[in-house]
Amino acid sequence: MFRTSLFSSVRVLSRAAPSSLVSSRLTAYRFLSTETRSKLEQAVKANPVVLFMKGTPAEPQCGFSRAVVQILDMHGVPSEKMQTYNVLADPELRSGIKEFSEWPTVPQVYVNGEFVGGCDILIGMHQSGELETLLENNGVIPKIEVSPEAEQSSPVNDKVAA
């Protein structure tokens, strides 16, 4: 609550006051610098899907980051629509993104500039089908039309329900 109130006063200041004053105030409170904040604002909007993670998709450095990479991959998120940032390569980014998103952990996923969540939320949304809908509605992946014929012609499931 303390943090929110300070942030809102900073926002008001940034409109009215010269930037030098704002940045010195921000430094004094050890908050995210205006520069970092605007960089992050641009970064989360620069691509349809933006992932802040530990390591890279090819070499994740943390199981939670790996899980998120795998989930996005499973949904066929094309690489040209996704940008990943390795927070381990940039200490400023690592602390900055936590504050920017007001989220204490990494990985973090943004879709069209909106914060979606971390690993737990992505897994939950994957299981419930919400993630697919979200990615489809945001034009990240194409919608799959399920025609009644396709459903009927699908092979009979030989598994027996318990």
Binding site: F64, W103, P104, T105, F115, G117, G118, C119, D120, I121
Partner: peptide, 25 residues
Amino acid sequence: TLARHRMVNELLKDQIAQMHAFSQK
């Protein structure tokens, strides 16, 4: 879910800051 997690993150802010990993349902 996002709002719930934010709520838990906020009330465990000090503890989570000292952890490496925190997962919630």
